[in-house]
Design a protein around this nucleic acid. Structure first.
Lengths: 266, 266
DNA sequence: GGCCCACTGTGTCCTAGATTGCAGAACTCC
DNA sequence: GGAGTTCTGCAATCTAGGACACAGTGGGCC
């Protein structure tokens, strides 16, 4: 009652909003988009905050030891059968970290953008770790072997502190997500997730609104819900003018409105 | 179908099993139980693994600076209004860490036994952190102020590594719990949770089975479910002879059976 | 320019679990 | 040993969201 339920009232006109003639998510834009703000030709390490404290020597050494590897869209970066033996740095593309249940259903733990470091559990010496990683698009990844990491890294005390902070933030995020999953209805979770995604996403340069590059299916994986249920919520959000939709793109139009929804209990 | 559903078949005789004349969870046992294996009179620090690498001097200094504080059952150790300004060490009793949703429903993040360190987010410099902590029973807690921690701790490189490991394990646990929450039905989650609890619980000394000291309500808080739903599952588990129940006590009788249930999808 | 396929919208069941309400049993405290 | 409080069992709804089943449609690709 407090939150007006308009789902019935505006079951049409949803896509029409998305098909307006702006080039916001025009496909050709993707190619010209620099993958990080630091420019195209960058070593695997120099753009990553985690490595900022490395000496130039270490940086060079590590860089030489970490040949970039290419993954096709859909390819597995690691899995149970190929357990993590390296620290990964995503150079280009997008990687999805996920877990699989017995029945094949999956939950997405994270979707990584260029510059992200993953396989961090190696740093902490945790072996058994049943996450999978899959390339959502063609991606380039650098690998640091456990030995290299050992030598140039764990010796450095500043590094340990950074790792702690990294993990601490992950803990906070995960606790938040866990309680959302347990206590919040799908609509609220969806809104909250969109907001978080929007924050980590690159700002749009042609508009005030922020684009999140995800299909409903991918979003559903992140929410722990079905594609159908997610689609329904998204249509609803769209017709309340909180977001705009395009195939595989979501534009956040009204962050404040989303924040309101994310606090609803039912 | 693969998992026999006996809920109807054995809806009686559940409590009778719990009311047998053993003294396994007799109330008077609690008082005589040593709170940790290291004996009664212990400083706040010496029994805690995290501090093992501290020099004797540091240990003494910190010990002097951390007066034990008492909390009554039900009292809040910290909350939004009293944000974390210290690192806590649980000396005696049990503490529940939880989060609260807008509508008042809560999710239990963890239930801590003596020896546990909490408020770790302080170590990583994360301020905003909306967890609550409440004493489940009369508890004694030592506090290390942020300044003390700073001086004796963050300077020590070994310490940072330990903290990383601590947080890494938390991340792993939380990811596991998150996927369970998203992909597994209540029964499976219950079984899995009981097993985890059993592992961290002190071994029973009079029997092969392990006791978990929780009411259905507390367990439900951990599972993100209602007390009723949890009770139903518990009765079911009990009549399959996988557990035995007593007021506020759960005995794991057949860990292997529980493990089987924890893998069921429906 | 046309074909095909990945995305999305919708609609109808159907079940797990929330909600509500209550009752009896066990433990605690006088 | 009696009263009140906690804990647990049980049953009757109610509902969010899952499972299926299709139907458009936009866009990439040839």
């Amino acid at each position: 009652m407090t939150t007006p339920n308009l789902s019935a009232a505006c079951s049409t006109t949803i896509v029409s909003a998305a098909s307006n003639p702006t080039t916001l998510w025009a496909p050709h834009e993707r190619e010209t988009e620099p993958l990080t703000e630091t420019g195209e030709p960058f070593s695997c390490l120099n753009a990553v905050e985690l490595f900022a404290d490395l000496s130039a020597d270490d940086m060079d050494a590590l860089d030489r030891m970490s040949p970039p590897k290419h993954f096709y869209s859909g390819e597995l970066v690691f899995s149970q059968s190929q357990p993590i033996k390296a620290l990964f740095i995503l150079k280009a593309g997008r990687i999805r970290i996920f877990r699989v249940a017995e029945d094949g259903k999956t939950l997405t733990i994270a979707i990584l953008e260029p510059g992200a470091v993953f396989g961090e559990m190696l740093l902490v010496g945790l072996q058994m770790y049943d996450n999978y990683a899959e390339a959502l698009e063609a991606s380039t990844v650098c690998q640091l072997s456990a030995a290299d990491v050992e030598n140039h890294f764990l010796s450095n005390p500043k590094m340990a502190v950074k790792i702690s902070r990294l993990l601490g933030e992950q803990v906070a995020r995960l606790e938040e997500r866990l309680t959302d999953m347990a206590l919040r209805p799908l609509a609220a979770r969806t809104a909250a997730t969109l907001l978080t995604l929007a924050n980590s996403a690159p700002r749009g340069r042609f508009t005030h609104s922020v684009a999140v590059k995800l299909t409903h299916e991918q979003l559903a994986g992140l929410l722990g819900a079905t594609r159908e249920a997610t689609s329904k919520i998204m249509s609803d959000l769209a017709c309340r003018k909180l977001i705009k939709q395009g195939r595989g793109r979501i534009l956040i139009e009204d962050a404040e409105g989303l924040r309101r929804i994310s606090r609803t209990t039912f």
